[in-house]
Simulated assay, not measured.
Amino acid sequence: MKEESISNRQLLFLVLLMQIGSRILSLPYMEAKYAGIYGWMAALIGGIASQLSIMLIWNLGKRYPNQHIFQYVYTLAGKPIGSVLTFLYAIYFSYSALIVALLYIEKLSRWVLPKTPWWVLLLLIFIASGYAAMSSLRLQSFISLSLAPILIAGYLTIVVSGLREADIRNILPIGHSGGSSFANGVFQGYTAGFGYDLLLYAFPFVKSQSSRKLLGAITWANGLTTLIYVTVVLICALNFTPDQMSNIPEPTVFILKQLKWDVVQSIDMLFIALWFSILAATVYVYLFLAAKAVCHIGAVHKEKHVLWVWICTGICFAIGCWIPEENVINAVSGKPYEIMSVVCIVFIPLLLLLIPKVSRLRGRNI
């Protein structure tokens, strides 16, 4: 328990790095596609929706402050259903690790290392992530904290680059969005903020003076993530017309190309390469959670965490080697992943939260 304990600040940076992931490169394009010039607003509302999901998970954890989801799921649903749900979470967390890795490697391969074999890039990120996932939650939080300067530097670089050529006329006229569906834009902003699902496991390990301070820490993480996304989406909208945005899948990269520095030949390629560490931080936490879920299948905690980390890592790597095409990656990271994420982050926690209340109502009616 002591090895897993983390502070509120460590939780903040763990969740922050998990939420950012690879979507900072592609979210502006998706928001422009669906919400047009109001993509920044859709990203903001998506962040607010994420906060509602955080409140749901926080309320569930507050009810069982000394247990994580792989423990209280058996108390609420029984061993058979609990085992099925735990296995579902193991698949979900492994799936998340795979999707985050694939989305980043596809961009790294296309922009920076086009001649490097796909499997080599996958192997690099999964070896690094698998090694980190063997460690405790506390050690992972120290790693995430040490990576925060890269995140801050990357964000400031995008802001400085984007403001140089910003033109407010690109988001005019007010009242005409140009997008196909504002609601879909909000949903894109909502899914971009996934990562706070770590709280399902981490809640009892956060050493906080009160559950409200814990909520405050993860709210700060979500607020900073929302601020970063809204800023980046708005800057991209100020630099490109709606027609241009519809043809640029990664507008953030083109904005970084505007910044010239004699010391570094290409800021955009440096950014994508350094972002490897941020992506690895997301992947290794998901692999860690997947292994923890497998270890708790059957209501008995089996001390084989390291073994299952490498099994989950190996499975993700093997699957990733079979889907190097961009259209296949977009397919597996689209609706199937979004549906599974909503089920595991919203519907299952909501059901677990309602089960005791439904049981009490049934007891009163008998």
Rank of each mutant, 00 (worst) to 15 (best):
K2S: 09
N8Q: 11
Q19C: 06
G21A: 06
R23P: 00
L25D: 01
S26L: 01
Y29P: 04
Y29V: 02
E31H: 09
W40M: 11
L44Q: 09
G47S: 09
G47Q: 08
I48L: 14
I48S: 03
A49C: 15
S53W: 04
S53F: 10
I57P: 01
W58H: 14
L60E: 01
L60W: 07
G61M: 08
P65M: 11
I69R: 02
F70M: 15
F70I: 09
Q71R: 13
V73C: 13
V73W: 10
T75M: 10
G78F: 13
K79N: 13
P80G: 06
P80S: 10
G82Y: 04
T86F: 00
Y89W: 02
Y89A: 00
S94E: 02
Y95S: 04
I99G: 00
V100P: 01
A101C: 13
L102T: 08
L103P: 01
Y104Q: 09
I105F: 12
I105D: 03
E106R: 09
L122Y: 05
I127A: 12
Y131G: 00
S136G: 12
S136P: 09
R138V: 03
R138N: 15
Q140K: 12
S141C: 12
I143T: 14
I143P: 00
S146K: 07
I150L: 15
L151I: 06
G154P: 03
G154E: 01
Y155K: 02
T157K: 11
V159C: 09
V159S: 05
L163A: 08
R164P: 00
N170G: 08
I174Y: 13
G175L: 04
S180Q: 13
F182P: 03
N184R: 09
N184H: 10
Q188R: 13
T191C: 03
T191Q: 09
T191W: 06
F194N: 04
Y196E: 12
L198M: 14
L198Y: 11
F203R: 03
F203M: 06
V206Q: 10
S211T: 14
L214M: 15
A217M: 08
I218K: 03
W220I: 13
A221V: 06
T226E: 05
V232Q: 02
V232Y: 01
V233C: 05
V233R: 03
V233D: 01
A237V: 01
L238I: 08
P242Q: 08
D243S: 12
P251D: 01
K260I: 07
W261H: 13
V264C: 08
S266M: 12
I267C: 04
L270K: 09
F276W: 11
V283L: 02
V285E: 02
L289T: 01
L289A: 07
K292A: 05
K292Y: 06
V294I: 15
I297D: 09
A299N: 15
H301R: 15
H301T: 09
K302L: 14
K304H: 15
L307K: 14
L307N: 05
T313K: 00
G314F: 10
I315F: 12
C316T: 00
C316P: 00
I319D: 00
I323V: 15
I323G: 00
E325C: 03
N327H: 14
V328P: 00
V328H: 06
I329E: 06
S333K: 02
G334C: 02
E338H: 04
V342A: 10
V343S: 05
C344A: 14
V346N: 05
P349G: 07
L351W: 07
L351Q: 03
L352K: 07
L354R: 10
K357M: 10
S359H: 07
S359K: 15
R364I: 04
